[in-house]
């Protein structure tokens, strides 16, 4: 596609920003035309080969004052609408829904405050497309497993923070870009107008997979949103129930392999070999073949000062149990250990 300009945006604020962008753009074009015009004129007419003789003027206080003041005036004219828009963007009061957005290396977490909904959103483009082994889909790199779902027409406030490094949450057509900073919370807000799917990306360099952590927002009409909210709550309850069940080693291994490929394989690699110098391998490693308690501990709580995150807050008890079981039995680790979700629930307080 040969898109050359910002897209006009789909909210009132986004349109304001777009208009502002166009105003400054055209002012710059106009100034450019004048300045480059005079320059071109001189280049054409005041060249020696045309017999031009140099004049001798080399200062003129009046002109110099004038061309200091005129740009100053133009700048003030730009600053006025800019200030007005900025003040609007900073007013996050009276929101009807609060969503906490947390950036992780390399995924987003969405928590609907007061609604018990809490999930992660991860890139869903298959590795094969990225490695050119498969044709790239329409939304290559801009698609996720679980988009952020918003109700149309309501003011939604985002509370942005991060778990590890700085990320930045950006959806161009909503004109929201705000950094997610570990330990601090930034606010932003949006009133989505049209139902639909809006795509964006993380825009702060956050490490290896910075280019692979898209943002997808799905805006639904109020009724559909309410339905989604209810469904999501039921699903969360089912998750909890699953953690009470008994799981066999086979079941855990099967599920564990899946979880491993989405949560762990980027670093430790699908074959459990890791990347020497950067990420330790798990095949035959002391952690994955030694004491179960230590293994559970590092998965739940992470390892400070390394890329190993605390997954205790990110995965369900079942997934945690499954993935630890998987790691202890895959790639010839064959410890035969089976970790139960109940064990995890107990330790993960």
């Amino acid at each position: 596609a040969w898109q050359v300009n910002l897209s006009p945006g789909s909210t009132a604020i986004a349109r304001d920003v777009y208009d502002l962008h166009m105003i400054i753009f055209w002012i710059c074009v106009a100034i450019g035309v004048v300045v480059f015009g005079v320059m071109l004129w001189s280049i054409i007419h005041h060249r020696k080969s045309r017999g031009a003789e140099a004049h001798h003027f080399h200062e003129n206080t009046a002109v110099e004052i004038l061309w200091t003041l005129i740009p100053f005036g133009i700048l003030i004219a730009m600053a006025v609408p800019a200030t007005a828009t900025l003040i609007k963007m900073y007013d996050s009061a009276d929101a009807e829904l609060d969503i906490q957005i947390t950036g992780y290396q390399w995924k987003w977490r969405y928590q609907y405050l007061g609604h018990d909904i809490d999930y992660f959103s991860v890139l869903s483009t298959p590795r094969e497309q990225i490695n050119n082994q498969e044709a790239k889909g329409e939304h290559y790199l801009l698609e996720v497993d679980n988009p952020l779902v918003l109700p149309a027409g309501k003011k939604v406030r985002f509370l942005l923070t991060a778990n590890d490094v700085i990320h930045s949450w950006w959806v161009p057509s909503l004109a929201v870009k705000k950094d997610a900073i570990p330990g601090f919370i930034n606010e932003a807000w949006v009133i989505p107008e049209e139902p639909g799917i809006y795509r964006g990306q993380c825009t702060e360099l956050c490490g290896r997979d910075h280019g692979f952590m898209p943002v997808v927002v799905e805006v639904k009409p109020q009724a559909e949103f309410d339905q989604w909210l209810a469904d999501a709550k039921t699903a969360a309850a089912e998750q909890e129930a699953a953690a009470e069940q008994e799981w066999t080693l086979e079941q855990l291994m099967e599920r564990g392999e899946q979880v491993y490929s989405t949560a762990c394989a980027v670093c430790h690699q699908a074959n459990g070999q890791g990347i020497p110098g950067a990420f330790p391998g798990l095949a035959g490693s002391p952690i994955a073949t030694g004491d179960v308690g230590a293994h559970i501990d590092i998965v739940l709580h992470g390892k400070a000062g390394t890329a190993m995150q605390a997954f205790g807050g990110q995965l369900s008890a079942v997934d945690l149990a499954a993935v630890i079981t998987y790691e202890r039995n895959a790639w010839g680790n064959d410890t035969g250990d089976s970790v139960s979700p109940q064990q995890i629930t107990e330790l993960n307080q």
Binding site: Q3, L6, S7, I130, Y140, L141, G200, L205, H210, G211
Partner: peptide, 14 residues
């Protein structure tokens, strides 16, 4: 302006 972030090794098709 079309929306491509900097510092990324790979990008969307548009």
């Amino acid at each position: 302006l079309a929306g491509m972030p900097r510092r990324i090794p790979d990008y969307a098709l548009q």
